[in-house]
Amino acid sequence: MSLMNEPATPDYLPMIEKQLQMSEQQGAVLRSLFEGIRQMRDDVNEKVEEVQIMVQEVRDSVVLNDHEAFMVRAAVHAKSVELTKDRFKDSDEKFNAVVGRHRRMIWSKLKDRFEVAKYSHVRRIDYQESIEFVQSFRPEDYI
């Protein structure tokens, strides 16, 4: 048999090469898309962290609301009376003066403890701690 009589075999190499080029182009596009998405994710994560830090800064700077300030005030009043009753009878003429001294001392030490000029400037995040401070207050600790 001669070569002339053989059926011509198609040349697949150019088609395969073209397909390979297209696959490489698609791969490059997909890589670029992937890198863009990765960068966007990283940017979003960074912004989320920044927002979380700002939110925490705001939370840390917010002071007691009216109800919380009222509750601190009530705790100071109750504690000053309790401390005075431990030492004097309600009928004693010095009772009110001693209540006042205890109250002033509690206010002074509370403001020192939380580094504020006014008790109402205690930060909200410190509210529970301020109540506990007042409730456990002992003048002996500061004399």
Rank of each mutant, 00 (worst) to 15 (best):
M54N: 11
E68V: 00
S32V: 02
V44I: 15
A8W: 03
Q19D: 12
E24G: 07
Y12Q: 13
H77A: 15
V99Y: 00
A97F: 08
A117E: 14
K111H: 05
N5L: 11
I37M: 13
Q21L: 15
N5C: 08
K18Y: 07
I125K: 13
A69W: 03
G36N: 08
K18G: 06
I131H: 06
P139T: 09
R41A: 10
L20V: 11
Q52Y: 06
E129D: 13
E35C: 05
I143Y: 14
R103G: 08
M54Q: 14
R38N: 15
S91N: 10
A8K: 07
S108Y: 05
E129R: 15
F114K: 02
R138S: 14
S61M: 08
S80T: 00
H67Q: 11
R103L: 09
D86P: 05
D11W: 02
S136W: 02
R103C: 10
V122F: 06
D126F: 07
V55C: 07
K18I: 05
V76G: 01
Q56I: 04
S120A: 04
K79A: 05
S120Q: 08
Y12C: 03
L20G: 07
A117S: 15
M54G: 07
M105L: 15
K79E: 03
E17L: 13
Q52S: 08
G36C: 02
A8M: 05
R73A: 10
E132T: 07
S130K: 07
Q56H: 06
V62G: 04
V29F: 08
V72E: 01
M22D: 14
L83V: 05
G100H: 09
L64T: 02
V51H: 11
S108I: 01
V72K: 01
S2R: 15
H121G: 08
D112W: 00
F114R: 03
V62C: 04
K109T: 00
